[in-house]
């Protein structure tokens, strides 16, 4: 049941637990037919209720307790945040920083796919290459890529290049490692099956290795999206001249807490939307997989 969160990616660097990092978390399957209406709706109702309660309590908090003047500077309410979000979009002042952030995100993520996929296939197929690159992959994957930020600022300046590079090194490893795992876990029997029909190496890749790796790659992509967003945020916090993150840091300095939360919400919506897109892609690409049940 726990496997419902993502593809179980086992082995060297990706354990089942790492796959949980995708974090999209439908609980135990409640939609089983035959249960009463309340039972089927219970998760939705409870989930919605808790969010509503949270928002209402947050909204009413300043009226329930007296907040000191100092703390008040740091306090905002959901209605204020909603108003600020509305204003940001209505005046159009959010589009420029959002565009800057989005282009860093898109370029870095694309670059990580372009590099990570072929490299993952290569080390999945070659034992020697795998053995040689393993120390580097282990070391870089364990280290928060953030340590390279000051170095990258020095090398690439405070512009788009630096952002693209930090997003790239953040998103590269989930894609690389998952592709590798997917390629390596290709079923030997299936390879033998197609070989027994006279298949070439190319046929083996086309008919067995790549389709088998697909769910792993998509799971890696989901992880990569989270890392890419993180990369954009930190790059803009510490070393950029423009972007959504810059807007947030400046707002924090001016105690405009509602603007900080607005930025956070925009980032969250972006990454949820991207994740949802990947999930659509996933269900398209993996129609052949048993729904949920397949993960023993």
């Amino acid at each position: 049941m726990g496997g419902a969160r993502g593809v179980p990616v086992a082995g060297r660097t990706m354990t089942d637990a790492r796959a949980l990092e995708t974090g999209v978390a439908p609980a135990a399957d409640p939609g089983a037919p035959g249960r009463s209406l309340w039972h089927r709706l219970e998760p939705t109702i409870l989930g919605t209720t808790s969010i509503v309660v949270l928002l209402v309590v947050w909204e009413l908090l300043p009226r329930l307790i007296t907040v000191s003047a100092g703390t008040k500077l740091f306090f905002t309410t959901p209605s204020q945040i909603a108003g600020t979000l509305w204003r940001l979009f209505a005046t159009g002042s959010i589009w420029t920083p959002l565009g800057v952030s989005a282009s860093g995100f898109a370029l870095g993520l694309s670059l990580s796919i372009v590099v990570g996929l072929p490299l993952g296939v290569l080390i999945g197929r070659s034992r020697t290459l795998n053995a040689m690159l393993d120390p580097f992959i282990t070391a870089f994957n364990a280290t928060p890529r953030l340590v390279f930020l000051p170095l990258l600022m020095l090398w690439f300046g405070l512009g788009l290049e630096m952002k693209v590079v930090i997003v790239f090194i953040g998103a590269l490893f989930p894609i690389l490692i998952n592709t590798y795992e997917g390629v390596r876990n290709a079923d030997k029997t299936l390879i033998n099956v197609v070989r027994s029909f006279g298949a070439s190496e190319w046929d083996i890749a086309r008919l067995v290795v790549v389709p088998n790796a697909m769910p792993y790659i998509v799971a890696g992509l989901r992880l990569a999206i989270g890392r890419a967003v993180l990369g954009v945020v930190v790059a803009e916090f510490f070393g950029s001249e423009s972007g959504l993150g810059v807007m947030m840091v400046q707002a924090a300095g001016r105690y405009q807490v509602d603007v900080v939360f607005s930025g956070l919400i925009v980032f969250a919506v972006l990454s949820l939307a991207m994740t949802a897109m990947v999930q659509v892609l996933e269900s398209r690409l993996t129609r052949w997989r048993p729904q949920r049940a397949g993960e023993e």
């Binding site: 999209v24 409640p30 808790s50 990454s271």
Partner: peptide
């Protein structure tokens, strides 16, 4: 049921 959606939102937010 009650906390999963909130956790998912928190987790998806940077």
């Amino acid at each position: 049921y009650a906390l999963d959606p909130i956790m998912t939102i928190f987790y998806a937010s940077p």
